[in-house]
């Protein structure tokens, strides 16, 4: 019989700093899974950025849902919004050299941080919403 994967689910309203509720939950789960402090910090930072993207760019007032799937060898975090979606191919990879001393917007680092901090990241997006699926493998 297949073992059920424990899942923790959060529903966040789009209000200032609600992403910190997600990071507090992530810390509890990381402790439960015996993840290192480094891994826990990386998951929290990636989660903050994914939540902020969902809050800011989904252009909706609907709640954002977060699912933590506690697998034997990894933690999978899904951040799900019901917004207008986005085209990842149109998101430029930011470089600080292109931002400093030029009349460029300094923001826009979320996706790069998420990809740098997690072991794998997938984006599914259409006109009805976006799901970001982030995976952190457990190091032995």
């Amino acid at each position: 019989m297949k073992k059920l994967v424990p899942v923790v689910e959060l529903k966040l309203p789009i209000l200032p700093n609600m992403e910190l509720i997600a990071t507090q939950t992530a810390e509890v789960i990381a402790n439960h899974m015996d993840l290192s402090e480094e891994q826990s910090g990386e998951i929290s930072m990636a989660l903050i950025e994914a939540c902020i993207n969902a809050f800011e760019h989904s252009k909706t007032e609907n709640n954002v849902f977060i699912h933590f799937l506690i697998e034997e060898d990894s933690l999978i975090v899904k951040v799900i919004d019901q917004g207008i979606g986005f085209d990842k191919t149109k998101v430029e990879i930011p470089k600080i050299e292109n931002k400093i001393g030029k009349n460029e917007r300094k923001r826009g680092w979320g996706l790069q941080l998420i990809q740098a901090l997690m072991d794998s990241v997938e984006f599914e997006s259409n006109g009805e919403g976006t799901t970001v699926t982030m995976k952190k493998n457990i190091k032995n």
């Binding site: 910090g41 929290s44 930072m45 600080i96 941080l113």
Partner: peptide
């Protein structure tokens, strides 16, 4: 700096400037 803050600064390139 906390380690994750330091890592974030590195990823974003702040440590170049």
């Amino acid at each position: 700096l906390a380690p994750i803050v330091s890592k974030t600064f590195n990823i974003m390139g702040l440590t170049k400037y």
